[in-house]
Computed example of a mutant assay.
Amino acid sequence: MALEDVTSRAWPARVRERLGGWRLNAAGGRTGRANTCWALEAPDRDPVEAIAAVEAWYAGQGQAPRFKTTDGATQPANLPELLAASGYRVDSETLVMIGPVGGEGGAVIATQPDAPFQAVLFEALYKDPADAEERLETVRRIAPPVFFARLDVDGAPAAVGACAVEGEWAGLSLMRTVARARRQGLARRIVGSLLEQARLAGATKSYLQVEAENEPAVALYQACGFETVYRYRYWARA
């Protein structure tokens, strides 16, 4: 699936290896995309043996093994059943949505996650600063052009988001608003600002990933013109 390749490059893990068509990613254990085995094509061995090999690889990384299965792309097709038989369960489901480019919002735009941007990220993820740091390390590995948008409220950084452009595609990520500034329309303005930068950079369409259970965010993106095209699921041992 071509879009999966684009999304992988837009959120690059610190360590990346292959097991045939399975892609092993590790970056510290926090974010899903950079810390799971993407089973997009057939592995280079029997699938049950491949699951064991993935588990051994993640043990070597000091992380618990996790798998990602994607609608219409997972190989082998019965991998969910094999994972369930091995004690894995779905621990989250993500929507992949595609949408337009172009918009407005008046956000401050930068090409690096500067100190005010980082302040919002750490405040929004205050329960797990290591999560925020891993996300910052990840976006610093993205090939340019990458844009970082920020809005302030009463002189203080309040909302942020990022956008990575590759060819015709623009991928949104790191959408965060601090608690004191929510329900003020800031996230929609961040989206509009980033989609305009994407248009100026030559993109013609956009995508994002959002947890299926995050209904407010899903509603926001739908209002911005995004629609769900497929889903993927993370699997972890219960």
Rank of each mutant, 00 (worst) to 15 (best):
K68I: 09
E17R: 13
A130L: 15
Y232L: 00
G32C: 08
G167H: 12
A181P: 06
V6N: 01
V96E: 00
A42K: 07
G28H: 11
F148H: 13
P216C: 01
T138F: 02
R141H: 09
A143S: 14
M97N: 00
G72D: 12
N35M: 04
D131K: 15
R141N: 09
L79Q: 06
V101G: 00
P43R: 04
A132I: 05
Y234A: 03
M97A: 00
P65T: 14
R231V: 00
S193E: 02
P80D: 08
L121E: 11
A77Q: 13
A27Y: 10
A132W: 08
V139L: 10
P43T: 06
L200D: 09
P76S: 15
A52W: 10
K68E: 13
P80T: 04
D5M: 09
T228E: 08
A212V: 03
A13G: 10
L121P: 08
I142W: 03
K205V: 08
A143D: 14
A219L: 04
V229S: 03
Q61T: 09
G171A: 04
L200I: 09
Q61L: 10
A181I: 03
G185H: 07
A158I: 06
E49S: 13
R150Y: 03
P157H: 07
W38K: 01
A130S: 13
P76L: 10
D128G: 05
K68A: 15
D46T: 06
P76C: 10
A10R: 01
T94I: 00
Y88Q: 02
A212E: 03
V48D: 15
